[in-house]
Write a protein that binds this DNA or RNA. Structure first.
Lengths: 194, 194
DNA sequence: AAATTTTCGACTAAATTAGTCAAATGTTTC
DNA sequence: GAAACATTTGACTAATTTAGTCGAAAATTT
């Protein structure tokens, strides 16, 4: 695909996000996406090879937004402690903002797709690495005391996943933020240098 | 359909509400509804003759809920003035609560169905009659002064529809409630006995 | 105005879906 | 307990929808 084409590809992706968010991969049709973009269905195939191809692009885009939101948020903090707490909240907020796309993303039907599994595991890696780098800084600054860095980072990510599940069904944002703080404090007091 | 059958019919309608709310009439499949009800698709046809038939039942049910919520709300008020204001708010709140179903209901694709048009016009009649009865009480109690009752009731309903349209795109509930009050005051000062 | 990119409508093969049906299972009634 | 009835189901089909193709028309660039 040529150069200036980027804009229209992006346009299509943007429409597709909404359609996928509303209907999920299965029920969203190329016709739906095309209409939302004021184009004929066949035009889409000039930019993407298949519906799955568009979906991949959507997932990639939303994933990148999620990652950069998290990275930006923790970049604003100086202390590893604050970075960690901010990471928690930024993750929840970003996920909250993406709630629609995300709920489509949770669709069990998607689990069968290999590229979704790949994306998930890539995102897991990103999270573990990010947490690890925060923990490392904490160790260097003598704020944290951790035996097994990998295992600790992994455990933290798993813990957040648990919270995320709870979050999916929790409407009370206030209560949720308190949960985040509680989990954080519990974790923090476990790893803080005594 | 036999007698004790009612329970299961209702069960099916309840599942169907959720499915229609999520996907709309077009994209909701009998299979979806059946699954949500832990039944085989063919079982549904024992209780309903078609998908459209289920949809009609859903619309009827939600319409009745809407009506009774409104009627209950205004029954709690004594003064015609308060009844009118309460009507406004109850209508908005009920519609708000039914937001999902309602958004599916707004689908342009539905406009082609005759029974939807029929339902709409029946609901319009209900609203106009309800408003008229409130206005009548107001006139009797010398609180309102109205020339053409029918035309006034009609105008009020049309006004609320306009607000409803605005509401559909307005996320700020606070602002919306202020709008309701404003519209109400404007209207009220127009019909109040001087 | 030639070359290239973009759009589109018409088309097809494959998949999905509404609705049917006959048989299986479950429940009542005598 | 078996006849009568109600309910559920899986297999099936006809009709519709849908992903993806293709050749040619617009639009844009060179």
């Amino acid at each position: 695909m040529p150069e200036g084409t980027k804009d229209i590809r992006d346009q299509i992706i943007e429409s597709a996000v909404k359609i996928f968010a509303r209907y999920g991969l299965r029920k969203a049709t190329m016709e739906d996406i095309a209409k939302a973009n004021n184009r004929a269905k066949s035009s889409l195939y000039h930019y993407f090879s298949s519906k799955e191809d568009i979906f991949k692009a959507v997932i990639k885009r939303e994933g990148n937004i999620l990652k950069s939101e998290i990275l930006n948020a923790i970049a604003r903090e100086k202390l590893p402690t604050d970075k960690l707490r901010t990471y928690f909240k930024a993750r929840m907020n970003a996920l909250n903002r993406l709630a629609n796309v995300y709920s489509a993303f949770q669709d069990e039907y998607l689990e069968n797709y290999k590229f979704i599994q790949k994306f998930r595991s890539q995102f897991d890696s990103f999270e573990i690495e990010t947490i690890k780098s925060i923990l490392k800084q904490g160790i260097e600054k003598k704020i944290f005391e951790i035996d097994d860095l990998d295992l600790t980072a992994f455990t933290i990510v798993v813990g957040m996943k648990g919270l995320e599940y709870h979050w999916a069904t929790e409407k009370d944002i206030k209560k949720l933020n308190r949960n985040i703080d509680t989990l954080f404090d519990l974790l923090f007091n476990g790893i803080k240098r005594r």
